[in-house]
Design a protein around this nucleic acid. Structure first.
Lengths: 253, 253
DNA sequence: AACACCTGTGCGTTATTCGAACTGTTGGTC
DNA sequence: GACCAACAGTTCGAATAACGCACAGGTGTT
């Protein structure tokens, strides 16, 4: 049931567009019809509109996104001054840490990377980019972004999201995850090992709010990077300084 | 007049969404109505749909994009394997060049950055990010992406686009720009100084086609970086090697 | 040949959308 | 305080865009 006064056909169309978040090279109209639950003819009309307006291209394998969607994403990044103020800072931090560093924000039931830097000397990459969506419950940036949320928000998230077993080390007990989120909030950092990717460790610290979304800065690297206890402290120190520098930018509140 | 069998309301809505490419922090419905030419009530309904579906948020200053659009852009990047295969390569090249390096593709009447790397030691950044849209006629990546286009495509572009005076050094004579595009095609590189940004020089070389769009790899740096004639040759050599490595990836054809 | 899957098309029906007109709020100026 | 500009919210009758069912065709596989 849509709110009075909006456009239901447009809303349906946006659901079709959102199907392309899945990292699939191309989709058939039949697949999209199944994903959205819309009638085949409805799906076809909406897909044709996306092709006409330049958001999709129609190839032999099916429908694919064009770079046009990137241009709108670029509008979000420019509006939030990511390129001029956040990126150079992350580039410096990545150099200091010799690891991938990212700024992520919570968007509904996931965390999304809005900036990312990886110096040439960093060895590990999981292939994430600006725009990558990460699970809230199983990543350092995800849990840290929940750290400042009201209990009813957290309750809602646990109602909608079931824990997922990404690796053998993934914690899947909801109560333990909740407790860890609360601890992250108290200690102002999150550190996870191999919960989301085998062989990978991740740390995150809170930054503040970016245009209404909780923002955190984090790093992902290989496990052996944290062989000594003081390795984590050193990393967190650098991330905290990064967060402090980020907070000085006018885009955070 | 829409093609038979597509959805005009959805197409209108997508025009509203496309307004947010402009790097403005927020927009009023009145501004969007002016930008699109739609009736105020129509604009309002379409905007409400974007808010309901989570693409926009409504704040005191007006409507702003949420990170949701980034997630779809992330789908494009993941579908094209940008994070796992292109980005590490650009990171390495950026380290080698000590400069910002980007992969751009032509999308209609502009070039869009799909990947970008800037090592911590690079001094210059213009603040562009993945998603930044650059003019075709006045940037190295833009002109180089036109290098492989058929004459009718180039004719169409010159019919739709008038040259713009970005700096005192910007070439605005269409015939001279055409001649330069042709020369870029012959010599397989483009090098421009201060045509788009004062104090900046840019070089680009072609890569191939990425999902139907012409892709080029380029670098932007300060003018004094090319004080000696052999400086450009060295940069082009590195970019050409990068292009060769990129072409080995299965995503280019 | 049969089957599964995907796509394209026509058309009667109706739900959605449109846009004009009216109303309300806010901030700035005099 | 009055007035104005700009923006936003709402209603509703009319028109049309969109829906979805049914039919038809193409392609690849067995």
């Amino acid at each position: 049931m849509r709110q009075h006064g909006s456009a239901s056909t447009f809303s349906k169309g946006l659901q079709v567009l959102a199907c392309f978040e899945a990292s699939q090279r191309s989709f058939t109209m039949a697949e999209i019809s199944k994903m959205t639950g819309f009638d085949r003819a409805t799906t076809r009309r909406l897909c044709l509109s996306l092709v006409e307006t330049g958001f999709l291209t129609k190839g032999e394998q099916g429908l694919s996104l064009t770079p046009k969607i990137l241009a709108i994403a670029g509008g979000y990044l420019a509006a939030n001054d990511i390129g001029l103020s956040v990126q150079p800072l992350l580039d410096q931090v990545s150099q200091d840490l010799c690891a991938e560093v990212s700024l992520a924000v919570r968007d509904g039931d996931r965390a999304i990377y809005v900036a990312k830097s990886r110096s040439g000397v960093a060895r590990v990459t999981l292939g994430f980019t600006v725009g990558s969506a990460l699970p809230l419950l199983h990543t350092a940036v995800g849990r840290m972004s929940l750290g400042g949320c009201a209990p009813d928000i957290i309750d809602g998230i646990f109602q909608r999201l079931a824990p997922v077993q990404y690796t053998e080390k993934t914690e899947t007990d909801p109560e333990k995850i909740r407790a860890d989120i609360a601890q992250c909030a108290r200690q102002c950092f999150c550190f996870l090992q191999e919960e989301f990717e085998v062989g990978a460790a991740a740390a995150a610290v809170p930054v503040g709010m970016l245009n209404g979304s909780a923002a955190v800065v984090g790093t992902t690297t290989s496990l052996n990077r944290f062989a000594e206890p003081e390795d984590l402290e050193q990393t967190l120190d650098i991330l905290r300084q990064a967060a402090m520098s980020l907070r000085r930018l006018s885009i955070f509140s």
